[in-house]
Amino acid sequence: MEVCIVFTPDNPNLFTLNSTAWLVFDLCDGRSWKRLQKAYYDAVEPLRSPEEARDELMGVVSDLERKGIIERNPVVRTLRPRPGARGRKTGVASNEGR
């Protein structure tokens, strides 16, 4: 099992992201909203319809923006991590035998 942790220096905090949020964070690499939508749908289909994927993506992007993890450039309509924000996956061994 892996968990994903993001540090945001602007408003110092650590966030633990679930796998969906981590995927979106990873995809917000300066691409446009349109390309982000396509990439996200490609990652989640056939588990999600295009509409479900879009709605889900909007919710996650909104949450990541609110937390200061990603930012939107309104001029060129791209999404990327806030300056200094960085994340890592941290491997957590299974709890077998605990």
């Binding site: 942790i5 890592r88 941290t90 491997g91 957590v92 061994a93 709890n95 035998g97 605990r98």
Partner: peptide, 10 residues
């Protein structure tokens, strides 16, 4: 004996 966390975070 397997440690629970592979690499430290904090």
């Amino acid at each position: 004996m397997r440690s629970y966390l592979e690499n430290p975070v904090k």
